[in-house]
Design a protein around this nucleic acid. Structure first.
Length: 258
DNA sequence: ATGGTAGGTCTCCTA
């Protein structure tokens, strides 16, 4: 089973890129974030000709929004409104007996101080709430994917020291994410398969030449529960950052033996 | 030390 996660940054603007990605990579299921659209305007039926007959989404106007596009029937579709924030940041399904949680974690604004920046406070509270949920509902045979908006390791950012005080790589967020990961017995399978080296899934639009400056971060993740040790490979599709009108994020792929 | 770009629209807010 091949799973891809991708923050598309507008599903409507990127529908032709999604089509190309499905054509080339042929995942069984594609997990999208930042769709920035209500469900009614997502046109998830555009991909039926490629065999993607099943979809599920939690849309929202302008902001957030998560979706699945799948060749496999989707069971037990659930959307959880963590913190009752009314923001479309989570959707989960069961495919082939495996639960897939698809998340778009809050970005957290610019200032990494909960007293000065309510968006940063919200980000930390959101992660705590997700952690609580999985403490009460112990995950098993599960995959967690999405844009977690945190680059936890030194090699997940272009310059660890320069980014220590930049939201997405601050010790507050990183420690919280690692605590959540450990509590849920989640394994970061990208790092399992690629333990060394700098690897990024996001490069800012605000760069003259994203590849030359290479100021990236690894914000997009694929985790699995420890009982589900079936991953064969996990890799980042960096070349999509050079497609026409790209998202600022590129897809992350995982292959499983099931 | 600063500003840079993109998307959706609430022509400003978010990333």
């Amino acid at each position: 089973m091949k799973v891809i996660t991708w923050n598309v940054n507008s599903i409507r603007l990127r529908s032709s890129l999604i089509y190309r990605l499905l054509e080339i990579e042929k995942p069984d299921i594609l997990c999208l974030q930042e769709c920035k659209s209500i469900t009614e305007q997502m046109s998830l039926d555009l991909f039926e000709s490629l065999g993607y007959l099943f979809s599920a989404s939690w849309g929202q106007k302008s902001y957030n929004g998560v979706a699945f596009i799948s060749k496999i029937p989707l069971e037990k579709i659930e959307k959880i409104d963590f913190l009752n924030c009314k923001e479309a940041r989570h959707i989960s399904v069961v495919v082939n007996g495996i639960t897939i949680h698809n998340f778009y974690f809050p970005a957290g604004g610019d200032i990494p101080d909960i007293n000065l920046n309510k968006k940063f406070r919200f980000k930390l509270e959101y992660i705590r709430e997700v952690e609580k949920f999985f403490n009460l509902n112990k995950p098993f045979k599960s995959i967690l994917v999405g844009d977690l908006n945190i680059a936890p390791e030194i090699d997940d950012v272009w310059d660890h020291k320069k980014l220590l005080n930049v939201v997405s790589h601050t010790p507050d967020e990183v420690n919280l994410l690692k605590e959540f990961q450990a509590n849920g017995l989640w394994v970061d399978i990208f790092r399992k398969h690629n333990p060394k080296g700098k690897h990024f899934s996001w490069w800012s639009y605000r760069s003259r030449d994203w590849k030359l400056s290479n100021r990236g971060r690894r914000l997009d993740h694929i985790w699995v529960t420890e009982d589900f040790k079936k991953s064969l490979n996990c890799y980042i599709l960096k070349s999509l950052r050079d497609w026409e009108r790209p998202s600022d994020h590129v897809p992350v792929v995982a292959e499983f033996k099931i």
